[in-house]
Computed example of a mutant assay.
Amino acid sequence: MAGGWASDGAVQEQIDSSIEDAIQRARSQLPTGESLSHCEACAAAIPQARREAVKGVRLCVACQSELDKQQKAASGYNRRGSKDSQLR
């Protein structure tokens, strides 16, 4: 049940939109093209098994893990703009 000016499906629409945005963002970050033999960040050799498993891989496991940590820290946002989310 919606309150105020919101329609009955507004909350679910907001959730669906957030999920669709996250999926689109994740897909846009997938590597493409031919895998590199050496990490473009630290020049360490990328194992053959990783190059075959992840097509278009450009980073070694250590550098990819660090990049993932940085992206995770900056990725969250709240469409609802609640007071709690604004205080963080």
Rank of each mutant, 00 (worst) to 15 (best):
G9K: 13
P47C: 03
V61L: 15
S17G: 10
P31K: 00
D84Q: 15
Q86S: 03
I46Q: 00
D16A: 09
L67V: 10
S7M: 08
L87N: 15
Q24H: 13
S17F: 13
R51K: 03
D21L: 07
A53I: 02
I15R: 07
A10L: 04
S65G: 11
C63A: 03
R27C: 04
S17T: 08
I15A: 11
Q24E: 15
W5Q: 14
K83N: 12
D21S: 10
E13G: 12
Y77T: 11
L36M: 13
S7T: 09
K55E: 14
A53F: 10
D68H: 04
E20R: 08
S7I: 04
S82C: 11
G81T: 05
A43Q: 14
G33I: 00
A44Y: 01
D16C: 05
K83G: 11
S7L: 12
R51E: 02
L87D: 11
Q64P: 02
A62G: 06
S65H: 12
G33W: 00
G76V: 12
L36D: 12
A6Q: 15
L87M: 14
I19W: 06
L36G: 01
D16Q: 08
Q29L: 08
L36Q: 10
Q70I: 13
Q48N: 14
W5F: 15
C42R: 02
M1E: 12
G81K: 03
E66R: 06
G9P: 04
I19A: 13
S28P: 00
L67M: 15
Q64I: 03
E34W: 02
K69T: 08
E66Q: 13
S18M: 10
R79W: 11
A41G: 05
R79Q: 11
H38C: 10
C60K: 00
E34P: 00
Y77A: 14
A10M: 08
C42M: 04
A74Q: 07
R50M: 03
D8G: 08
Q14A: 14
E66L: 09
C63W: 01
A26L: 08
C60S: 01
Q64M: 11
I46K: 00
E13T: 11
N78H: 11
E34T: 12
M1V: 13
Y77K: 06
C60H: 03
